[in-house]
């Protein structure tokens, strides 16, 4: 019971600290913006640890963070191989192929109005469908290896990326297009100098949505069959063995991979679309 009391105390202390920080004079500084969520996260972790220990929650239901950390550090080599299999081989290759194909298709669709009017509603429709459902079919076609995961990822990222890119290529004002006409600019010049740059914010939006989708696709596809490694495989087999420390470790890897890849794309976006209103100011 003392553990639970400590948990409560920790919560009160953490929250009180955050209240002071958030309402204090330094609340708008970069440091406070970073510290407050970190303190909150640490408080939650601490409470989790104390409550699990204090209330005697069995590890097969919810392991304490310390045990997860232990499993994680003890199995870094294994988790690294899972990471390579699922994230680098499955998700990344599918992501590159899917986004690349969608981008090229968007260029084509943009050239032909008929194609655009036909494919765009379809693309919007497809983007809302549970495409993960194709995983069993693709696993059947491409085998248990990473290729089937990449195929699922290709299908998952293709339509959101297509829809966003096409929308971006359309996002020029009539004045900007008229300007290019007054210069008697060729279609290629208009594309390179006007439409692609102004499409960039949309393209990055598609790329950002797609990073998360790619991970979901790669992991869920492994639930339908995989070789004896991969994050999805690790999660489903470790659950079977009731090794929840391992499950959580795999989830941590997936979460880190997701946040890191999203962060990378967002960083690239900041570098390339610094001029866009959304990057220049305001939240």
């Amino acid at each position: 019971m003392t553990h639970a009391a400590f948990a409560l105390l920790l919560w009160i202390a953490g929250w009180a600290l955050n209240v002071r920080l958030a309402n204090g004079p330094a609340s708008n500084t970069q440091a406070a913006r970073l510290a407050v969520p970190l303190i909150f996260g640490a408080t939650v972790l601490g409470m989790w640890e104390l409550l699990v220990r204090g209330l005697g929650v069995p590890a097969v239901i919810l392991p304490p963070p310390s045990q997860i950390a232990e499993t994680f550090t003890a199995n870094t080599a294994l988790l690294w191989r899972d990471f390579v299999q699922t994230i680098l081989k499955g998700a990344l290759s599918g992501y590159l192929i899917g986004c690349g194909a969608a981008f090229l298709t968007a260029l084509l669709v943009d050239r032909y109005d008929y194609l655009r009017r036909g494919l765009l509603p379809l693309g919007n429709f497809m983007a809302a469908l549970p495409i993960v459902g194709t995983a069993p079919i693709l696993v059947m076609w491409f085998g248990f290896g990473w290729q089937s995961k990449a195929a699922v990822v290709v299908l998952m990222v293709f339509f959101p990326m297509l829809v966003n890119t096409v929308a971006g290529l359309q996002d020029t004002s009539s004045m900007q297009r008229d300007l290019m006409r007054t210069y008697a600019a060729s279609t290629g010049q208009t594309l390179m100098k006007l439409r692609l740059p102004s499409a960039l914010p949309f393209v990055f939006n598609g790329l950002k949505i797609s990073t998360t989708l790619a991970l979901i696709g790669a992991i869920v596809a492994e639930f339908f069959g995989s070789p004896t490694l991969g994050l999805g495989f690790r999660i489903s087999t470790s659950i079977g063995q009731l090794d929840l420390g391992m499950v959580w470790s795999a989830i941590v890897v997936a979460a880190l991979a997701g946040t890191a890849s999203y962060g990378l794309v967002a960083l690239l976006e900041k570098r390339l679309t610094f001029w866009h209103a959304s990057q220049r100011g305001g939240p």
Binding site: P37, I219, F223
Partner: peptide, 22 residues
Amino acid sequence: DMSVMPWAIVSQTIPIVALAPM
């Protein structure tokens, strides 16, 4: 806002479905 919002945003970047089987 300052405590929770960053985590809500970060959570959109992670494949939450991975939690499903567990």
